[in-house]
Write a protein that binds this DNA or RNA. Structure first.
Ligand code: MN
Ligand code: MN
Ligand code: ZN
Ligand code: ZN
Lengths: 136, 136
DNA sequence: ATACAAATGCAACAATGTTGCAAAATTACG
DNA sequence: CGTAATTTTGCAACATTGTTGCATTTGTAT
């Protein structure tokens, strides 16, 4: 709870119920969550618009980052403290069993050498497979 | 034109105007194209529904594959002949200058070693940067 | 040429996300 | 603490992307 305040304060975001509860939902989730799930977890007590706007505020402050799955579905996850305000280039893993999406901080991927002429700035690596729980 | 027939025949797809013209559009594009652009290139002469259904047919036969960008926008590209019916794991490059999306067949990426418990099946690597034309 | 199967257009719908505007809540300040 | 300025919120309207059911048209095989 104290951490929630700290996060908001550190990013110059005012303390509103929606923001505080959304951060709690994101903290408690052990997977990246969709807007729809956030809304449900909050008991549908906030308007969709508000949630989208809050997600935008959080994203622009690097409090969260988003992961777009192959079908276009977007999930949101808290950005690990150490990665805020710097690059948050880490792998994402989508489990086809439980449908959860995990941030995988290690290993760090090095940018592959592209054909000449291409200048790489950034990358997204999304791996699909089975997670620890679903893999047996 | 002969190739268009060959592609359709090889995948048991009947020769319809929409299919033939869509393959031509995909061949002529030097970038992955969106449904919207396909529709425009065809002079808006086909219904959106038909285009989506054709994209589905093509995808399920590996004639094309789709690339989902970070914002959720989906682009479609012909699958290189050699990769049809096998894995088509290659890199995609999104140029932030011209907004084009390119299939980059080389280098082949090897799957990174994940934390124990994760079983990787498949991956998507999307690199963002500047292409040959936009880079200078 | 006919007959059957498949593709198409249209209308309706769902999901996701955005915008304008008025009301409500936060924050800043005296 | 009380008030004013600033933000955030809810609501309605809208845009875009994609899907489905159904009747009609087209393609293919005989
Ligand atoms: Mn992540
Ligand atoms: Mn490709
Ligand atoms: Zn799982
Ligand atoms: Zn470019």
């Amino acid at each position: 709870m104290k951490e929630v305040f700290a996060i908001l304060e550190a990013h110059n975001l005012s303390r509103t119920p929606c923001r505080m509860e959304m951060i709690k939902v994101l903290q408690e989730a052990n997977s990246a969550v969709s807007e729809q799930l956030i809304k449900e977890k909050l008991g549908n007590s906030f308007d969709r618009t508000t949630i989208y706007r809050t997600l935008k505020s959080f994203s622009s402050q690097d409090v969260i980052h988003s992961i777009t799955l192959e079908g276009g579905e977007v999930r949101y996850a808290l950005t690990p403290l150490k990665q805020r305000r710097i690059n948050h280039d880490h792998i994402h893993f989508h489990c086809s069993g439980c449908n959860n999406v995990f941030c995988i901080p290690e290993p760090k991927i090095q940018m592959p050498e592209l054909p000449s002429g291409f200048l790489a700035k950034n990358f997204d690596l999304l791996i699909e497979g089975l997670c620890k729980t679903c893999n047996t």
